[in-house]
Amino acid sequence: MNFWLELIIKLVAILGFVLTGALVVIYAELKAGSHMQGRIGPYYAGVRWGWAQPLADGLKFLQKEDLSPTGADRTIYGLAPYVVMMSTIAVFVVIPFGPDMVGRDLDLGIYFILAISSLSVLGILMAGWSSANKYSLMGGLRAAAQLIAYELPLVLAAAAVVVQAGTMSMNGIVLAQSETWFTVAGIDVAMPFLLKGQIISFIIFMIAVVAELSRIPFDMPIAESELTMGYLTEYSGIRFTMFFLGEYASMIAFSAIAATLFLGGYAAPGVPDGLANLVGPGVMLLKIALLVFVIIWIRWTWPRLREDQLQRLAWFWLIPIALANIAVVAIFKVVF
């Protein structure tokens, strides 16, 4: 196929998936959150169940005035949301939704993801710094400290999987999980890494993901009862929408990564190879939905931590445990 044509198709597919996915997740959060609180949530937008609420919200944000404070550094202020959004979208390039349904199967897939996703720190720091607002600045600093602290457990937890799988390619990791692990009564049993002894990495990975997403219980950067809205305080209109969409898109992105690394990605038991491209996306979406729901569920139940407690959790607990975990995984890998 023509290279450019393929590129455009892939781009449109990824963009479309990210945007609709983000809207769906926003809707899920509104709805699940309100039912957890004994409310109904969106009801009137659209004809039933308020399904069009995220769209309507988006339209509302778009027509709002795009304010920027007098003291703001206009260029950086304007650029920041796009940096955040870009880093999120770029992650999707290497996430496989089927054996062939992947933007580009890089050999260093997981490495690329971890590198690209940490770019969003830059955007957040830009937003915090350029807003000329003390709350924004503090939010930006908190975000920087937090994201950097949790980048490490994230990488280390992923590294344990890489060690076990023996490859950094996302597709390779999925294949490693669909390999036969043992055979019982003539049935070949394949297990995702979660069940192959990676439970500790999974928990660490998920904690780090929630922290990377700055969601409760780690939402100090935007803690609205402390810093009004943190680095988002001054944003409005389309730029705020960008941040907002970016947050939910990266929720999907990280859930997709976790699903690929620990839950077997697009592979499902009993799916013949020929159908993997067809069924794969559905399986993958289900797994993503499950993880996204857990993240939403946590957000509507728990309070937030304090900045120093968060740092202590990362440096004193998660990182040492993750390191020990890598060592154990490596020993098992070599011995067996």
Binding site: H35, M36, G38, I40, Y43
Partner: peptide, 21 residues
Amino acid sequence: GLWEGMWLTLKTMLKPAPVTM
């Protein structure tokens, strides 16, 4: 405490919301 809280919110989610439209 964390899990019990989550169990409570899940139970509430599955119950109909006490809302007057």
